[in-house]
């Protein structure tokens, strides 16, 4: 048997865009083992997962609805990660934005939509930013690890929401733990009538475009990338590292806050504890899958929106638990991470 040798040999450049594709194929090969174990047909499952949601107009639009919060959290995570700030708190910042949207939406009765909707958007951005400011300031001023603090604050705000919903905001009509409905004028208009696609989708693309613009066309974007590549080198080159990270963290929190506004004003019209279906954490998958590149991130968000819709279709049509979608998404993250490393090596006969 010939001896095999693993050696460092970076793959040619044209392979890079193929990595997500290869990762998706490998993920679905592994997933088909799970489907086979349930005595079901994997091809049928893939059809319901990936094709059926796009086959009808209404479910294709639902894919866009599902991708809306992921575009925003993906953009938020990308913005922070690019500057070497590991914001794991998009989940909590989204919730902060949702609290602000629910609160503002209640008091904006009799305010025309032209005013009410910008107030909601600015308020949600500010809330996300404010909640991101706590770990960001602790990191940049006192050198406290942001990963741990953002993770803890994700749980803290859930308790705060539960406090609001079981107390002052408990719906007087139903008595359920949900806030009163927001004013009609604060509700995001529909982009396509008789579908759930709302203004938040447009907001998400504007955010993605803004992130692209900052990365490509501004000095801040340049500084952020320098810090992300290496803090000490950036400092040596005269970049104010702490200030750059703080700015990146705050804007990242603001974008995540917009995701909360979008869910409240576009989908639910009130606040519930389960307003975020792990969107903040899924945003990390989106950002990694999209290689922290705005174009890649938007494709990744659309694809994960498709997986979310597909998981429901598979569940309805074949009786496979909807949580198969969670397995596919997280496996895809891990396999992409592995592929990004493995592209630098090759196996050769000695």
């Amino acid at each position: 048997m010939p001896r095999l040798k693993i050696e460092r040999y970076p793959a040619p450049l044209w392979v890079r865009p193929l990595i997500p594709v290869i990762s998706i194929v490998v993920t679905f090969l592994l997933t088909s083992l799970v489907v086979l174990a349930l005595n079901k047909n994997p091809f049928e499952a893939f059809y319901y997962f990936l094709i059926a949601p796009l086959a009808s107009q209404s479910s294709a639009i639902e894919v866009l609805v599902k991708s809306t919060p992921l575009l925003l959290t993906g953009a938020a995570v990308t913005f922070a990660f690019s500057a070497g700030y590991y914001n794991i708190g998009a989940e909590g910042q989204l919730l902060a934005g949702a609290v602000a949207a629910a609160g503002l939406g209640m008091v904006l009765q009799n305010v025309p939509p032209v005013l009410a909707i910008p107030i909601m958007i600015v308020g949600g951005f500010a809330a996300g930013m404010a909640y991101a400011a706590i770990p960001a300031l602790l990191k940049t001023r006192l050198d406290v690890d942001e990963v741990v603090t953002t993770l803890l604050l994700n749980t803290v705000i859930l308790f705060f929401i539960s406090f609001l919903l079981n107390g002052v905001w408990r719906s007087p009509v139903s008595g359920w733990p949900q806030s009163p409905e927001i004013a009609d004028s604060a509700i995001f208009p529909r982009l396509i009538p008789r579908t759930r696609l709302h203004l938040g989708f447009l907001l998400a693309w504007i955010s993605i475009g803004a992130v692209w613009l900052v990365f490509r066309r501004t000095a801040l974007g340049l500084r952020m990338r320098a810090v992300g590549l290496g803090k000490e080198a950036a400092r040596f080159a005269g970049v104010k590292v702490e200030q750059t990270m703080l700015t990146a963290a705050l804007i990242s929190g603001g974008i995540a806050g917009l995701a909360g506004v979008s869910e409240v004003a576009g989908i639910h019209y009130h606040l519930i504890e389960a307003i975020s279906n792990n969107f903040g954490y899924t945003g990390i998958i989106v950002a990694m899958l999209g290689a922290l590149n705005p174009l890649g991130v938007s494709l990744a968000a659309l694809f994960l929106g498709l997986l979310d819709t597909g998981a429901q279709t598979v569940s309805r049509a074949m009786g496979i638990p909807i949580y198969l979608g969670n397995i596919v998404q997280s496996a895809l993250l891990l396999i992409t991470l592995a592929a990004l490393v493995l592209q630098n090596y090759r196996i050769r006969r000695e």
């Binding site: 792990n278 998958i285 397995i327 997280s330 891990l334 991470l337 490393v341």
Partner: peptide, 19 residues
Amino acid sequence: LGVNQHVSGLGITLLMTGI
């Protein structure tokens, strides 16, 4: 593989929760 520990740890958490 030497992948970023933050992201792979979160990936493991999401995968184990999903499974």
